[in-house]
Design a binder for these strands. Structure first.
Lengths: 68, 68
DNA sequence: TTGTAGACTGCCGTCGACA
DNA sequence: ATGTCGACGGCAGTCTACA
């Protein structure tokens, strides 16, 4: 499992835990929905700024995205 | 302070804590030295894969890069 | 609701060189 | 030992559209 896959699974789990759809997360984060879909599938090499937007939208600290 | 600056300062602090030069970190991580310089100055929007290489070279878990 | 495709712009990340 | 520059290929991130 690469880091992109691990990261994607974490985003997916946190999003579902909040009861949000990809569309919801897209609107809250300002990131387009197809890109969020690809991120959750571990296909994208996400950057710091996107990670920050995701964390804000999920109402968590960025470091949570890297906890087991 | 943006996230890029915060991240860069963390890398700088961890590197110095290990007694490494940018050149040392460059060799251990496989990332070119000018880029590491720019990262520490908060000028670059670092990606997941680069973060992973930095964490391995610094012998820490990635999440440490986001702790206060 | 999610995955995927194509086309596009801008920037990540590399490298060699010089202060 | 570090910062900076210029040039470059490749991909991050956007958008529209369709299953």
């Amino acid at each position: 499992m690469g880091i992109k896959q691990t990261f994607g699974q974490k985003v997916n789990a946190l999003r579902k835990g909040k009861g949000l759809s990809q569309e919801d997360l897209s609107e809250k984060s300002g990131i387009n929905r197809p890109y969020i879909s690809a991120i959750e599938q571990g296909k994208r090499n996400v950057s710091l700024e996107v990670m920050e937007k995701l964390a804000e939208a999920l109402e968590i600290h960025i470091k949570v995205l890297f906890e087991e």
